[in-house]
């Protein structure tokens, strides 16, 4: 009914306008990066490219796809993201399910988990654990240490708790075990939250670069984010002997932009597929009917 009222119509118009403007504001930097990637190197160095390419060229993309390191790092990034997200989600769902029940020891478990979000021993001991477990230079070094996500676990637990108790009790009476309740009741009802947390986990893995630098001791096996880190650092010539070839690498702003853009593409493309779970807004109600 309210949709028909005049004030709501005015609100709706303003709302659409406002959201549209915000969207525009958010996409500008990426358009800039894109414009630089299609511009000539000289124009990019002079910083005269804004939102439209200057001296349009594909050279940067050609060079990017000629670079085996870049393509390799894409593959490693996908491998890491897929396996890391699977592992994290398995652990998250399992732990959150357990924690959503009431039982003695629950609070202790929660604090044990939350505590790790706050306290850590720092770089040296963490590094020692990973090297002593001989994980260096393997995919495990990138997915195991961060496999348990405190944030995701707590949030998932919240979502599980929101599931009406009657549904659970009804199935328990039917004699369904914990595992079957999880599979047949909790999971189908939690698709939006699972999609959301998977997305967080994927994005986290896709963007994380520091562990790659630390634990991968062969630069040819860097995942994408780590590889990108090696090309975007700006040069500091204060104390180094100057070498023209290093300067030339600095000037390749167009290639850098191309790689940043292509590097963001896969994770951007995943989004619309997960989006359907948390945009429609009727999933939960539909299942409950």
């Amino acid at each position: 009914m309210y949709r028909k009222t005049m004030p709501y119509k005015i609100f709706n118009g303003c709302n659409i306008l406002f959201l549209g403007l915000m969207a525009l504001l958010c996409i500008l930097p990426l358009i800039h990066v894109l414009a630089v990637s299609f511009s000539s190197s000289a124009a990019a160095t002079a910083n005269i490219v804004t939102l439209w390419p200057v001296d349009f060229t594909f050279v940067a993309y050609q060079k990017t796809f000629d670079n085996p390191l870049f393509l390799n790092s894409l593959v490693y990034a996908v491998a890491r993201t897929v396996s890391g997200t699977l592992l994290t989600m398995l652990l998250t769902i399992s732990a959150a399910y357990g924690l959503s029940k009431s039982f003695p020891g629950r609070t202790a478990y929660s604090w044990i988990i939350v505590f790790t979000m706050l306290f850590n021993g720092g770089l040296i001991p963490s590094y020692m654990v990973v090297t002593n477990l001989q994980l260096t230079n393997t995919l495990w070094a990138l997915i195991l240490p961060s496999a348990v996500s405190v944030f995701n676990t707590i949030l998932m637990m919240q979502f599980f708790r929101a599931i009406p108790k009657e549904l659970v009790e009804a199935s328990s009476i039917d004699g369904a075990g914990y595992f079957r309740v999880l599979i047949s009741i909790f999971l189908p009802l939690s698709l939006p939250s699972i999609a959301t947390l998977s997305l967080f986990s994927m994005v986290g893995h896709w963007n994380s670069w520091f562990d790659g630098l630390l634990y991968i001791t062969d630069y040819r096996k860097y995942p994408l984010a780590t590889f990108l880190q090696t090309i975007i650092q700006s040069g500091d010539m204060r104390n180094t002997s100057i070498d023209p070839s290093e300067l030339a690498a600095l000037s390749e702003r167009t290639i850098r932009s191309a790689q940043i853009f292509i590097g963001a593409l896969p994770i951007l493309l995943v989004y619309p597929f997960l989006q359907k779970y948390f945009v429609s807004g009727t999933t939960m109600g539909a299942v409950k009917e």
Partner: peptide, 23 residues
């Protein structure tokens, strides 16, 4: 090459870790 890294910062960090962890 015992190990390779991609950036100067990472190189320094790695060496510092190695000296601190007796590698």
């Amino acid at each position: 090459n015992d190990w390779t890294v991609g950036t100067g910062d990472a190189f320094t960090t790695k060496l510092r870790l190695m000296v601190n962890t007796n590698e």
